[in-house]
Structure formats: structure tokens, C-alpha cells
């Protein structure tokens, strides 16, 4: 799954470390999500969307062809 976390993080002037701290995960998890290596849980996706004030589907882009 693709995502725009890096873009939203830059828009909100957040480092991976500070974003991780705000949503209660490790910096490595944010890095893995940004690289598309890990798909977050629904709970984490909601936390991120609320933090950025955006809809989940604006942050995470589901592509049918990937599956």
C-alpha cells in the first residue's frame, strides 16, 4: 500500500522520531510505513489521520492491483 506520510510529515514539520512519539510507535515503524514495507493497523492509521487532520484515504492509497 502506498502512502503520503512523508508529505504530511513535511507539511507538519515533523521528524520521524517526533511523529513516532506522537502516535506511540517506534521511529523504525514510521520509517517502514513510509517505505511501504509495513501496512499499519487500522488504529494506527486513524491516529495518523487525526494527527494530520486528513482522511485515511488521503494518506493511504489502496491499489487493487497489488493483491
Amino acid at each position: 500500500m502506498k502512502n503520503n506520510i512523508k508529505v504530511y510529515r513535511a507539511m507538519n514539520d515533523l521528524t520521524q522520531e517526533s511523529l513516532a512519539e506522537k502516535v506511540g510507535v517506534t521511529r523504525q515503524t514510521i520509517h517502514a510505513i513510509e517505505k511501504g514495507k509495513y501496512d499499519p493497523s487500522l488504529e494506527l492509521a486513524f491516529k495518523l489521520s487525526r494527527l494530520f487532520g486528513a482522511r485515511i484515504e488521503d494518506i493511504f492509497l489502496y491499489d487493487d492491483s497489488e493483491n
Binding site: A20, E21, G24, V25, T26, Q28, T29, A32, Y38, S41
Partner: peptide
């Protein structure tokens, strides 16, 4: 800080 999270559990 955070030691364990969902990715580490996975």
C-alpha cells in the same frame, strides 16, 4: 520512549 509496538509484535 516506545519500546514495543505493533510492527515489533508482528
Amino acid at each position: 520512549g516506545v519500546v514495543e509496538d505493533e510492527r515489533i509484535h508482528l
